[in-house]
Simulated assay, not measured.
Amino acid sequence: MRANLLTRTLVGVTALAGIAAGALAGASTGFAAPVPASQPAASSVVAAPAAVDNLGLNYHRATGLQCWLHNNDWGYNGAIDGQLGTASWMAMQRYLRFNDGYTGPIDGIVGSGTISALQRALRGDYGYTGGIDGIAGSGTKAAFARFADDMWEEC
């Protein structure tokens, strides 16, 4: 009888251990943190153009250019803050359309059409000797700085 009681106790303890182990195994998956949603590796959003593009001009030169754009009726009415943003470039595009063959939209975006017209403007008096390629390289930026210095003197 003792053997029978010992066997029943051992079977009961084993069963209880099995139930507890099963409950713990179920709890480990049931209470696990949720799997995060997968994220795309690259964004499909198109990058917006920079809001400010001084093309290498420092504060002094950029404020001089803004002052000149304002005083010479190119439609710049923004702040003279040294930040060549959309309004500054729209005024510059108006100037370039009138003087240097800019044919693109007056949108304030400093794209290749704006840069090409700027390069044409800089070719004569401001020492730009590179190609009219629409890329604002070091030669374009240096000539643009000379242009801005000249405009600052007028302001």
Rank of each mutant, 00 (worst) to 15 (best):
P40R: 00
Y128F: 12
Q39W: 10
Y95H: 10
G64S: 05
G12S: 15
G108C: 04
Q66S: 02
G127V: 03
L24V: 15
S112I: 01
P40S: 08
A41E: 14
G124Y: 07
E153I: 00
G75N: 12
L24T: 13
Y95M: 12
I109T: 09
G111R: 01
S28I: 12
C67V: 06
E153F: 08
T86P: 07
L16T: 13
C155L: 08
I106L: 11
Q119E: 10
T63N: 00
L6F: 13
D149M: 09
I132H: 01
G18S: 14
V52Y: 00
A50K: 10
A117M: 03
Y102W: 07
S28F: 07
I115P: 07
C155N: 09
D125L: 06
G131C: 02
G85R: 11
Y128G: 10
E153A: 09
A48Y: 02
A20H: 00
W152R: 15
N99R: 14
G108E: 06
R2E: 14
Y126T: 01
G30D: 07
A142K: 10
S112P: 09
A50S: 09
A21M: 11
F144Y: 11
G30E: 09
G131T: 04
T9D: 11
E154T: 14
G82N: 06
L96S: 01
Q39A: 14
F31G: 05
A148L: 02
L118H: 01
R61P: 01
L57K: 04
G131V: 00
A79N: 13
G113Y: 05
F98Y: 11
S112N: 01
D100Q: 12
N72V: 01
G85T: 14
A32F: 05
G12Y: 09
A37Q: 13
A148D: 05
P105M: 02
W152S: 15
I109C: 05
N4W: 15
N54V: 09
Y126P: 03
G139A: 04
T7R: 14
L55C: 00
Y128M: 03
L6G: 05
Q93S: 03
F98H: 11
A17R: 00
T63H: 02
Y76R: 11
W89V: 00
T29D: 10
G131I: 00
V11M: 14
L96K: 05
D100G: 00
L84F: 10
V11C: 15
V11Q: 08
Y76H: 13
Y126S: 05
L10R: 12
A23C: 13
N72T: 12
L5G: 06
D100C: 08
L16A: 15
A87P: 08
T114R: 05
S44T: 10
T7Y: 11
Y126G: 02
A50F: 06
T63M: 03
G82H: 04
L16V: 14
V13R: 12
A42I: 11
